[in-house]
Amino acid sequence: MIAACLKWSAATGGWSAADQAALELGLQHAERTGTDCVAVTVGPAAAAGALGEALACGASRAVHVVVDGDLPSWDTAVALSAAVAEAITVWCGDYSADRGSGSVPAYLAALRHCEQALGVVEARPGSLPFEVLRRLDGGRRERVSVTGPAVVSVEGAAARLRRASLRAQLADHSARLTTVAGPPADHLDAPVVAYRPRARQLPAPAGAVALDRIGAILHSGTPARRGETVELEPPAAAAAILDALTRWGYRAGGAAPGGATS
């Protein structure tokens, strides 16, 4: 069995391009290996409609873990891992439509004690082993061989989701949709709306001519800050990374795993 994990977003009423790519690759994988593709969503009742679209696209079954609110990434991964326990390969998008942290696939791999290939830009799924291409920093790529049970998270450009036929879209798919109750979730008091960046007042850039001012805005001509190489024992290295993330503002001082939202 192949699984595709899809995060439904109330803001857009759908999935991110990355989740759509995950579903397409999951469907292709199932077709090439002659097995089932199961689409799984952890989300509110309204997400059921989107799972109907996954079924219209060709998923054999869908599992809806119903949670009424927002779950931390770790809890989302726990809920997903139960639903995809039998899957050999689990395809996920590497970001969700509501701009989550993208950490669910990694947690899921940790929970399943399986291989992980995250941030994949190209994949031709098939019988094991198969290869995927991962994005690395600095424009580099890494070719990774998936040799066993794995979680693969993909970028939106990795595949384009097929269009379901109108008949399939209109058909009643409820018989192939399993609904299970998820864990209790945090209730969001504020309604979820599409992301709109907040306005920020910035000082006007310096420079006598427009090109200089544009350069100042884009920081072009400023030497890029080179990465720092530290050689430490793993616990000290982990502490150094956490410390740097806190200094750069990515962590609100000492958050435990699962603190981020999915």
Binding site: R163, A164, S165, L166, R167, L170
Partner: peptide, 9 residues
């Protein structure tokens, strides 16, 4: 007629 496969309604 729609732009979906099998798309007449």
């Amino acid at each position: 007629r729609t732009d979906r496969p099998d798309g007449d309604l």
